[in-house]
């Protein structure tokens, strides 16, 4: 059995890596989704297809690619990031960004369709239009972030490769479950799995209530 403090350490690292990755992915993905939905520019269709395709990016492949980049002989080896939580955050950010961007694009696309004529009639600048749409999309974007968080928390392939599942350093819930299963500690593995499930459920529930409250306030 894992001592309680170690369990807390694993849960805390899981949350730290995944939440940081989702925040970074939101910072990139939401503006990217807005750009794809609102602006018309050469290569827009290609970029949209690419973003949608990357939603299904296999985590193991991302892990491998990042491993090759960050390994000592790789182009970014000098940064010495391999087997650190930072490398895990980078990997999950790569995995989650397309999810948030794709959801955001759909959300902004619907809102743009609804508000475009009204905002043009008001002579809103492009910047004012984007800010208005982001404000109006605030409830729906919670769903995009939830989807991203789901992918990040449940992911194992990338964090295993670039994190290395090092005890007290890069061990997170999914990698711990895999390890304990392989060691035959099925009870512990199942317990960890239940904690992961409960955590995921609690986060979803909290954000669901937040969204409902915001929506009721705005009567959206």
């Amino acid at each position: 059995m894992l001592p309680g403090s170690q369990l807390m350490e694993i849960v805390a690292l899981s949350l730290k890596v995944s939440v940081t990755a989702v925040l970074l992915a939101a910072l990139i993905g939401i503006p990217l989704g807005a750009l794809l939905a609102i602006r018309r520019f050469p290569g827009r269709t290609t970029l949209t297809v690419l973003v949608n395709a990357l939603m299904g990016l296999p985590p193991v492949v991302v892990g491998l690619g990042l491993y090759l980049l960050l390994s000592r002989s790789g182009p970014l080896g000098v940064l010495q990031l391999l087997y650190t939580p930072t490398a895990m955050i980078i990997a999950q950010t790569i995995l989650v960004t397309p999810v948030i961007a794709s959801f955001s694009q759909q959300i902004f696309s619907d809102l743009h369709h609804e508000y475009d004529e009204m905002l043009r009639a008001m002579r809103a600048s492009r910047w004012q239009t984007v800010l208005t749409l982001i404000h109006e999309a605030r409830h729906a974007l919670i769903t995009a972030i939830l989807a991203g968080l789901g992918r990040a928390l449940s992911e194992i392939g990338a964090v295993m490769i670039v994190g290395g599942n090092i005890n007290h350093a890069t061990r997170v819930m999914t990698t711990a479950i895999a390890l304990e299963t392989s060691k035959g500690n099925l009870r512990l593995a199942v317990s960890l799995g239940l904690i992961l499930l409960a955590l995921s459920f609690a986060i979803n529930l909290a954000l669901h209530f937040l969204r409902s409250r915001l929506e009721r306030a705005a009567h959206a």
Binding site: E114, Y115, E117, M118, L119, A121, M122, R123, A124, Q128, T132, H135, E136, H139, A218, H219, A220
Partner: peptide, 23 residues
């Protein structure tokens, strides 16, 4: 003004403040 009013998901006051800011 259009046949179907397109209003922001905000209060009446906030809708007008938004329009004042846009202008």
């Amino acid at each position: 003004v259009f046949q179907k009013p397109v209003l922001l998901r905000r209060s009446v006051r906030a809708n007008l403040l938004h329009a004042l800011a846009i202008a």
